[in-house]
Simulated scan of single mutants.
Amino acid sequence: MLGRNTRWVAGALALVCLLLIGPGAPRDDLPVAAPLPAGAATEIVPNRVMTWNICNPCRGAGRNLGRAADIATYAPQVVGLQEACVRDVEQIKNDLEHVYGLVYHVTYGSVLRNWSRCGGLPWRAGGYGQAILSAAPATDGVTVEYPDGGSEDRGFLAVTTEVAGRPVRVFNTHLAERRQEAVRARQVPVLAKEVARHDRAIVLGDFNAVPDSPELRPMWPLATDADPRCGPSAGGVCEPTTDWQSRFDYVFLRGIEPRAHRVRPSEHSDHHMYYADLAPL
């Protein structure tokens, strides 16, 4: 039987390991990836953009490899991720390249450092917020934190990248939590002001609000959702994008026309993947 001092040392070593690795550190080193489903993309699809709240904290063995497989199945040219830990996105990007042969550039838009979500040392917690994966290089990256994030810091990331051979400004945001309507009403005008500065823009994100919510009103005059049936009218037909059957996730398009859109659930998140195929710019 271990003595008291030995048990204390063992416990201390275990705690140090936890602090160094962190609860959000990748543990997905699976040797073999599951094959992609029939009909999956074989290379990055031009003109396709996706938004996806990847859910954090969500646990489960192989979650990042599974997330990479989900993205690889549809292989968008641009992917906006929310609730993204830098460590998780690094592994997703690595798996996309080395397991599925899809090479992306990544831009991070972390708005806070959170040990409980993203791991790391308590005084050097992992970055948490938004990330954009883009097949073409991204430039002029800007991260804006909303003046009031509500119960958690929130913001948006904006980059300029190439879609269909032409530059376009891409925004990726995550608004305040579901029951914080008044906070979101103060956040949307901050985002809308920046979107209005661009003739062509793609706005991806989890807005935590259904289409006819008052707080989304500043967005609709500027851009339309990739689903032409979905709009601010209460009679609009908007496919749910969450496990609780709410439409919270959007692909807003300004100066760009959609050709098709799809919503696809994932076992790795409580939000569905929502992607759109765009008309040539």
Rank of each mutant, 00 (worst) to 15 (best):
137 P>L: 00
269 S>C: 10
155 G>R: 08
4 R>Y: 10
143 T>A: 11
124 R>N: 09
169 R>N: 02
244 W>R: 12
25 A>G: 15
17 C>Q: 04
125 A>L: 14
95 D>R: 15
34 A>M: 03
38 A>N: 09
89 V>H: 05
2 L>V: 12
71 I>L: 15
35 P>H: 08
143 T>K: 14
100 Y>I: 03
146 Y>I: 15
79 V>S: 01
111 V>K: 00
279 A>N: 05
223 A>K: 11
1 M>S: 15
65 L>V: 09
44 I>W: 09
167 P>C: 13
212 D>C: 02
45 V>I: 08
231 G>T: 01
155 G>L: 12
31 P>E: 10
5 N>E: 06
108 Y>W: 08
270 D>S: 12
180 Q>A: 11
206 D>C: 07
41 A>S: 13
270 D>W: 03
187 Q>I: 07
101 G>P: 09
119 G>H: 06
102 L>G: 07
205 G>R: 09
157 L>P: 04
138 A>N: 08
60 G>I: 01
218 P>S: 04
83 E>A: 10
161 T>Q: 06
69 A>W: 07
111 V>G: 01
137 P>M: 04
87 R>N: 11
247 R>F: 13
273 M>T: 13
32 V>G: 00
142 V>Q: 06
202 I>V: 14
21 I>W: 13
73 T>W: 05
155 G>D: 02
37 P>N: 09
234 A>K: 13
136 A>E: 13
68 A>C: 04
251 V>S: 06
63 R>F: 11
49 V>H: 04
32 V>T: 12
246 S>M: 14
224 T>C: 07
73 T>P: 03
11 G>F: 12
39 G>D: 11
232 P>Y: 08
197 R>C: 06
177 E>H: 15
227 D>W: 03
148 D>E: 11
31 P>M: 12
45 V>T: 14
174 H>T: 03
161 T>W: 10
223 A>D: 12
106 V>H: 08
281 L>I: 00
235 G>Q: 13
238 C>G: 00
91 Q>K: 07
107 T>I: 02
14 A>N: 05
63 R>W: 14
132 I>S: 00
273 M>N: 12
46 P>G: 00
55 C>A: 11
105 H>E: 14
198 H>P: 08
103 V>C: 02
84 A>Y: 09
36 L>E: 07
106 V>E: 05
40 A>L: 03
224 T>K: 11
176 A>N: 00
59 R>T: 14
